[in-house]
């Protein structure tokens, strides 16, 4: 499989703090790559540097073989990246439908307003928000807002989608619904890069996992192998027993 995204020696400094330290990895087409790590490990910073929300201090980002390191965010989105936010950012006073239409109009899909409406309705149906289409987006509850984030991203016809803790704050039933959606997205041939806190969930859906700690990549590999990695157990899980328990659950 060729790689769709390649990150080379990416670093980010905030003042004196090294939030991201020489991180390199590749994402293969159509895979689900999970990124895990303790709080403050630099996971969201990594996403933001890849998508130009933050300007990386050094390093390169290649998307479909192009050096896109210094492209502005909107340009990357137009090329086929789609971004969701850990802290949801609905366009509050626009309707749910209009929110999704923005994604369809301005993402890679680049549709006309009429086509965007069709596409948006289709995607809303896919994520299960169809009956909320005329509601003001600000009035959705949190799980719905998370699904709206997904819908906007999907409507843009992305090749690579960034999911930043889309499962956080959901109850078990909602989590399993969301996981279904994620697997269905993969079936469409879209590559997924996801950050998640819920170990159990991410172990279940990821093809490969990268572990970050203190801004550095400390492990990479299939979920099973990563979970057995001593460094990971020590840094991330802290408690080897918990790691074993997680493995058993799997």
């Amino acid at each position: 499989m060729p790689s769709i995204l390649k990150v080379e020696n990416l670093s980010k400094k905030f003042g004196g703090l090294l939030a991201l330290n020489n991180v390199s990895f590749e994402v293969k087409e159509k895979e689900i790559l999970g990124i895990i790590g303790p709080n403050g490990a630099g996971k969201s910073t990594l996403f933001k540097c890849i998508t130009s929300i933050y300007k990386p201090s050094s390093g390169k980002v290649y998307f479909k073989e192009f050096d896109v390191t210094n492209y502005p965010t909107y340009k990357k989105v137009k090329m086929g990246m789609a971004i969701t936010h850990q802290i949801v950012k609905p366009l509050k006073e626009l309707s749910v439908l209009e929110n999704v239409m923005v994604g369809a109009c301005y993402g890679k899909a680049n549709l006309s307003i009429k086509e965007a409406r069709e596409k948006a309705l289709e995607v809303l149906d896919f994520v299960g928000l169809y009956d909320k289409k005329d509601l003001e987006a600000g009035k959705l509850n949190v799980p719905q807002k998370k699904r709206l984030e997904m819908a906007r991203a999907l409507a843009s016809d992305p090749e690579l989608i960034f999911l930043d803790e889309v499962l956080a704050g959901l109850n078990p039933a909602e989590v399993s619904k969301m996981l279904d959606v994620i697997l269905k997205i993969r079936e469409k041939g879209i590559t997924i890069l996801m950050i998640e806190h819920l170990m159990h969930a991410i172990m279940k859906v990821s093809d490969r996992i990268i572990v970050l700690d203190h801004g550095q990549k400390i492990a990479e590999g299939p979920p099973q192998k990563v979970a057995k990695n001593e460094k990971v157990i020590e840094a991330y899980l802290g408690d080897p027993k918990l790691a074993l328990k997680l493995l058993k659950e799997k």
């Binding site: 502005p72 909107y74 950012k89 509050k92 006073e93 923005v102 301005y106």
Partner: peptide
Amino acid sequence: LGLFAIREDEDAASTLGV
């Protein structure tokens, strides 16, 4: 639609490709 997205949340608008 792009303008309204900017009005609502400029950062969100740019991450949607505006």
